[in-house]
Amino acid sequence: MGTTDDVRADLPAAMTNLAEDFHAVTERERLQLLLELSHELPDLPERYAGRLDQMERVDECQSPLFLAVEVADDEARTVSLFFDAPAEAPTTRGFAGILHEGLDGLPAEEVLAVPDDAPYRFGLAEAVSPLRMRGMVGMLGRIKRQVRLRSEALTAGGGA
């Protein structure tokens, strides 16, 4: 990981800000930042609460994480993200927190344009070990896959 430019390349604005926050602090403080993001991850809205069968399980995560992706039938195809992970999995929750803060509310096109190596732009591989990064890579891959499928379905359905 090199310059600030590499870190920011092709990332949406909210994600760039987060990446810069992570790079501005020491490795130890990065873990604290990740912990804060894990606390800030919003609870599930009522329509998903207790309905994990409606969500996608992310197997790449060390601890069970469930994900739901909605794409609105509006012009921008606005993406909404919902995550569920237990409090005993703060790292997984923190990863979800980064993706929520970085991607929620963006147009589908911008989410699809996020580079697949984005999870490595936060300086976390050194702080948490590269092995633990697969969870976040898995989440991003699955988010993009769902966004693609749902956008296609909307277009095929003649919506908007």
Binding site: L31, Q62, S63, E88, A89, P90, T92, V128, S129
Partner: peptide, 25 residues
């Protein structure tokens, strides 16, 4: 722990963190 942040959320009083990956590998 498997989860590298779990110790920081609360631990047994007096306990210290030993991370399997960052400390032992």
């Amino acid at each position: 722990d498997e989860d590298v942040l779990l110790y920081d959320t609360g631990h047994v009083p007096g306990a210290l963190k030993l991370d399997w990956h960052t400390d032992l590998n």
